[in-house]
Design a binder for these strands. Structure first.
Lengths: 132, 132
DNA sequence: CTAAGTGCAAAATGTTTGCATACTT
DNA sequence: AAGTATGCAAACATTTTGCACTTAG
């Protein structure tokens, strides 16, 4: 049974505030410190883990960073996918039926259910292609 | 200009030995210690970085691990893709034309060149689906 | 009251860096 | 000789943990 604590609410509110972006634990912590919110680093990590476990947040490692990003699942559930430019780091949200089709194909033909919310494709974006 | 040092050779040989798998720097280090090979942790990281920079290795973060894996580019260039089971962690190598097609589609229609060697899809594998 | 959550400080991981020394070319 | 690479130890960044204390239900 999860308790509805002040610290849990703080995390949820912050995550909602940044729901369009992925945000790292350490980035959340800076905001927490800036705003002098009442939650410690250890608790932040514990709350994030528990929200992921409950299926409220998604944890994802973007780029070759050593830190994980968190995002509300709500914002991921309507099948859009992420492209990340390897040159400029830009994150592109892609709505694309072909990706859904690929996922169906992999499910039917290769017997593997892809978790659509975690699809991240790396490559070169429009702008960076031009400057090559 | 890169020098062909003993340490560089050690890293290349180890990476070749494990070319079917991704392998982390720390895993390499255990092997290095086991076999009493003559290369330090710092040098290992530096050699890995430099091999990535030269395009000989790929660095990839698999799973939500905080550690990067390395693999020879050779082994990635003939378009196969990676599926990782979120439950059992199994890594599946997938040869699938539909993925190539998706990549072409994204290139043509969305003006983004996906780096095929970095495509990793997460989900549930055959075996874990059954046990759900 | 009891299970769950918290803060702190310390530990654990994974990776990077400064600097003096050693090796490649 | 010049430029590059190395080892060491220390620093760093991110995350986890043990433990005593607090809070929600």
């Amino acid at each position: 049974m999860k308790y509805n604590t002040k610290q849990r609410q703080i995390v949820l509110e912050l995550i909602k505030e940044f729901s369009d972006e992925h945000i790292t634990a350490e980035a959340l912590l800076s905001i927490i410190n800036e705003r002098k919110l009442d939650i410690s680093r250890a608790t932040l990590y514990r709350v994030l883990d528990s929200l992921v476990e409950e299926g409220i947040l998604k944890k994802i490692i973007v780029d070759n960073k050593t830190s994980a990003c968190f995002q509300l699942c709500d914002h991921l559930d309507h099948h859009h996918f992420h492209l990340i430019c390897e040159k400029c780091g830009k994150l592109i949200h892609l709505d694309c039926e072909e990706v859904d089709e690929l996922i169906s194909h992999i499910s039917m033909e290769h017997d593997f259910d892809v978790n659509a919310s975690r699809v991240v494709l790396y490559g070169l974006c429009h702008d960076c292609k031009k400057s090559c």
